[in-house]
């Protein structure tokens, strides 16, 4: 699965987006992690797994690494990792805010 096929979807509410493209302050639901088993497990222990809500937070100068908020934890990932994590914009949550 490549990121290209995900981004191709037309409706922004259903389009899959690589995590590092999530705009600051925007919330999304994590859909899939396209990484090896070890990396996926490691990310899972930190709270990254399908179904969880993620909000893009601060970022380092130059935009890499970026900080993501899951529950109240803030976790930084390099873009090289985040580009393999796909999310769907959480429209309902954005409306709440």
């Amino acid at each position: 699965m490549t990121s290209g096929t995900h981004i191709a979807a037309a409706d922004p509410a259903t389009a899959l987006l690589p995590l590092h493209k999530l705009a600051r302050g925007a919330s999304a639901v994590l859909i899939s992690i396209e990484l090896g088993e070890e990396e996926t497990d490691h990310l899972g222990l930190m709270g990254f797994f399908p179904g969880v809500g993620v909000t893009a937070s601060n970022k380092a100068p130059g935009g890499d690494p970026r900080v993501y908020r899951i529950d109240h934890s803030e976790i930084a990932l390099r873009n090289e990792t985040a580009r393999h994590i796909f999310v769907k914009l959480d429209v309902s949550e954005q409306a709440e805010k």
Partner: peptide, 10 residues
């Protein structure tokens, strides 16, 4: 580095 991504909790 083995396939452990850089994950940093703030």
């Amino acid at each position: 580095t083995a396939k452990a991504p850089f994950v940093l909790e703030l």
